[in-house]
Design a protein around this nucleic acid. Structure first.
Length: 275
DNA sequence: ATCGTAGCCTGGTAGC
DNA sequence: TGCTACCAGGCTACGA
């Protein structure tokens, strides 16, 4: 369940372990994570061999390795991880792609569910994911403009929050947390939100993700870890997500869980009401 | 243009 | 014990 804070934790880890390193070789152990690279595994390795990682950038939940003017885009999906190892260490069974580095170590991409993967974008170093909207931490993020677009959506406000073309980086967990903080019901249509609430919601999203980043990210199990294999601590600070039946920290009412968009929505029935 | 859903994936767990 | 069904959910494709 990596969302913006978790991806940023990973980006920072990659920056310190991978920045400035040269790729000696690439071993593709499963075709699924490079499904969007049509030429296939051998060409993928050939493309990357000998190249240096100049920088690590991120927008929303996407991160990319800057290789001169090109970009190697990575998405963690549900369960993607990067781990650094000595080549003599045994490979975990979910290891999908291995990058051999010029410092004698390996960057291993693990992904149990394989929703994640790589995409090579020639000339894409600046912004290889142009279809993804700026996230709330991006210099290009225009709070007023996003709020206005949110207010024009007839659909449930949570659906809009999860739409990466409107604002990126927010997933199911932080959507519920932002809605709880701003006291907005997830099923509330965007059109009825009001400009003050819309702005409050976006600020709540930024706030909660900022706090989660401070804590090293959210994790319930070993599926999400940083590049050292460690979990973040934000799970214990969640106010809504995963708290079905437990008392709301604000008003004491029991947190409710409802199915929404093939997943769950957690909210307080008393202090998050439809306007 | 906007909105909503199916499908991709694996492994843990609940239920029989 | 061994089987099936379900759940987790980010994203794309596609139909209405």
């Amino acid at each position: 369940m990596p969302e913006l804070p978790e991806v940023e934790v990973v980006r920072r880890g990659l920056e310190s372990h991978l920045g400035g390193r040269r790729i000696l070789d690439v071993r593709v152990k499963h075709p699924r994570p490079i499904r969007s690279f049509a030429p296939g595994a051998a060409a993928f390795s050939e493309m990357l061999r000998g190249r240096r990682v100049d920088a690590l950038r991120r927008r929303g939940k996407y991160l990319w390795w800057v290789l001169d003017s090109d970009a190697l885009v990575a998405h963690l999906g549900m369960s993607g991880q990067f781990r650094f190892h000595d080549p003599r260490e045994p490979e975990h069974r979910h290891t999908r792609v291995v990058f051999e580095l010029d410092d004698g170590r390996e960057a291993r991409f693990l992904d149990q569910r394989m929703f994640g993967g790589f995409e090579f974008v020639p000339g894409g170093a600046q912004l290889p994911v142009a279809h993804i909207a700026p996230d709330p931490f991006d210099d290009d993020f225009d709070e007023r403009e996003v709020a206005a677009r949110l207010l024009s959506r007839h659909t449930a406000v949570k659906r809009a929050l999860l739409d990466q073309r409107l604002v990126s980086g927010i997933g199911n967990i932080y959507a519920d947390e932002a809605l709880w903080r701003a006291q907005v019901y997830y099923g509330q249509p965007g059109t009825g939100l009001g400009v003050r609430k819309a702005l409050a919601l976006l600020r709540s999203a930024r706030e909660v993700m900022s706090e989660a980043l401070e804590a090293g990210g959210t994790s319930f199990d070993s599926l999400y870890v940083n590049v050292n294999g460690e979990s973040g601590y934000f799970a214990r600070d969640l106010s809504a997500y995963g708290r079905e039946g437990l008392p709301c920290y604000r008003c004491g009412a029991a947190i409710r869980r409802e199915p929404f968009m093939n997943r769950s929505s957690f909210y307080c029935p008393r202090c998050q009401r439809r306007r």
